[in-house]
Amino acid sequence: MSFFRIDTQPARIPAWVLSWFLFAAGITAYFYAAEQRHRENPDDRVMPTVTQMVRAFQDAAAKPAEGQEVQEAPQSLIQRVRGSMLATDTLATARRFLISVALLFPAVLLGLHMAMFPYMGAFFLRFFQFFDKIVALSLLPILFIAFGIDELSKIMLIVIGVAPTIILDTVNLTKSVPREQIVKGFTLGAGDFAITYRIVLKQIFPRVLNSIRLNLKAVMLFLFAGEMIASTDGLAYRIALLRRHMGMDTILPYALWVALLLFAVDLGMSTLNKKLHPWFQE
């Protein structure tokens, strides 16, 4: 095997083994360490065993959170799952997440206009270049004072944290469209807005979607920060709450659940991108 050769191509099976090796090694190392700790201390809560995590996750997925109303009447499985702690938390986080991602699209339009219309660029660009450097979490107290501790402040935190990056990225993507395309548009009779929306936006859109995909983790990061500090529901709220009780048997499956959800969103966006833009080669 030529691990340090640049002009080589791994065969199918070695490539498959290599790509899964770190997953297998990580899982094995965890369970070995957990086993050791539990042998020394059967009540260890830092590294729960698989059985403990499965049980905790089943409880989270089928039972309501502590303090929530429990229905007396017998319920179907779907009703129980819908009212469970995991579903309630996931829905609360998903709602905030989707609103935040939707709010990034106006940011894309702003970036597009800033790059296409020089006066808009002159007006906004320097401001956003500076604003992008502000650590959004440092504004959190101001946001709580300005917008209260409800949903708005959490969504604003995400928008403030991620929108400048998306705006500046869109500016760069727009500027990378060859000048020939714009000139061509003019010579075919297109006006400023036709060129902006029908030529440039259509060309950059797949890359913009990729840029949003790359920023999904940042969106989630800011969302978690907001939920951990001021929220009464949501995945991050639950993790913060369980941390106080050392509920690692729930925290670890929750962390994996969040990763799985993000992975699914990313995969969905990537598939949608390919379907919507069959011409896009990257």
Partner: peptide, 29 residues
């Protein structure tokens, strides 16, 4: 503007449009 047609060496076509849509673009717009 439309007074002059233009055929550059590269990037002469809109990559997101089919050949037919590329040619019809001027008429449509």
């Amino acid at each position: 503007d439309r007074t002059c047609g233009y055929v550059p060496q590269r990037y002469s076509l809109f990559p997101d449009k089919t050949v037919l849509a590329n040619v019809a673009f001027g008429l449509e717009v």
